[in-house]
Design a protein around this nucleic acid. Structure first.
Length: 291
DNA sequence: GAATGGATCGGATTTACGTCA
DNA sequence: GTTGACGTAAATCCGATCCAT
């Protein structure tokens, strides 16, 4: 069964909190109309390249979440449409035996075979010839069922990497090989990253456009100020510049007094400085010429 | 024919273990 | 017997790619 794109749960975001306040409409891309977009939803940029950093079982709350999730999904997974014959008891035992990467040599060598060769020696699952063998060796693409995809998505939201235990549990639950689960997570990470890159690119493009426009505006203002230097009388009739003024004595941004032209040097607005309307600068009064 | 997504491949990195001086 | 350096194997990840649907 084909899984719709909307079901994929791709929720992309840009980690620019300050920027998002300034331009909230440009930062959130939620591709998950059908799924919960609660605050606990997965943040793509919170990825790690080292499993030990964000190990899903590294704290008890994650462990509890996973356990709760297991209980939650167990019921409807019974009788799920699987793409392969369920593992035999021996296979399951073998899989369980290789779950720990820190296990002994013998178990390691057993695990090694998982990547390249199927358990009974035939080529890995991906080709899928074991189930409906049509004779030829062409790669037969299996399609995960909707339920399988949903469970994998839910699991991915919890943690975008799997430890061997989780991988085995998930594989067992879904009736897939651990390698298939592993591959699914790898592809999911790769494609999520790709989407995120696209979003980042779009955001940077918009940043560039905004800065270009800002630069144009400031250049124009410079020209106006130069004109003022040449003919102050003309400048008096112009609209006040939008730049902020700075007190020469303490070098703090100040709101210019409305009644008289300001005698302070002007500085370009710094978007990272304290907003002008938050600066109370009473010291300015003392700078005015006395009547 | 393009898009999607499962699978494969090759390389890099990490970790555990064995060997040897 | 202990220790540190070194080599090796296995596991895992990622990026690129293939290819069936």
């Amino acid at each position: 069964m084909m899984v719709q794109k909307e079901d994929l749960g791709l929720s992309l975001s840009l980690n620019f909190p300050a920027a998002s306040e300034r331009n909230p409409s440009s930062l959130q891309v939620n591709l998950t109309p059908g799924l919960d977009s609660s605050p606990s939803s997965f943040n793509i940029l919170h990825r790690t390249t080292n499993c030990s950093d964000s190990h899903p079982f590294s704290n008890s709350s994650d462990r509890n979440n996973v356990d709760a999730f297991k209980v939650e999904t167990r019921s409807f997974l019974k009788g799920i449409d699987v793409n392969r014959k369920p593992p035999t008891a021996a296979e399951a035992e073998e899989e369980a035996g290789v779950s720990s990467p820190n296990s002994t040599i013998s178990s390691i060598s057993a695990k090694r075979s998982e990547r390249d060769v199927d358990h009974d020696g035939e080529r890995a699952s991906s080709r899928g010839v074991s189930d409906d063998d049509d004779g030829d060796n062409s790669r037969k693409k299996l399609r995960l069922s909707k339920d399988q995809s949903a469970v994998l998505e839910e699991s991915f939201k919890e943690h975008n990497t799997l430890n061997p235990k989780q991988k085995l549990a998930l594989a067992k639950k879904l009736g897939l090989r651990p390698r298939q689960v592993e591959v699914w997570f790898q592809n999911r990470r790769a494609r999520t990253k790709l989407k995120q890159t696209e979003v980042d690119c779009e955001f940077l493009k918009r940043c560039y456009e905004n800065l270009t426009e800002e630069n144009r505006r400031l250049q124009k203002e410079i020209q106006e100020l130069r004109a003022f230097k040449l003919s102050p009388q003309l400048y008096m009739q112009m609209a006040p510049p939008t730049t902020l003024t700075m007190c020469p004595s303490c070098e703090r941004v100040a709101v210019p007094p409305p009644e008289k032209p300001v005698n302070h040097r002007t500085l370009p607005f710094n978007p990272w400085s304290t907003p002008a309307n938050q600066v109370v600068h009473r010291h300015m009064n003392t700078l005015r010429p006395r009547a």
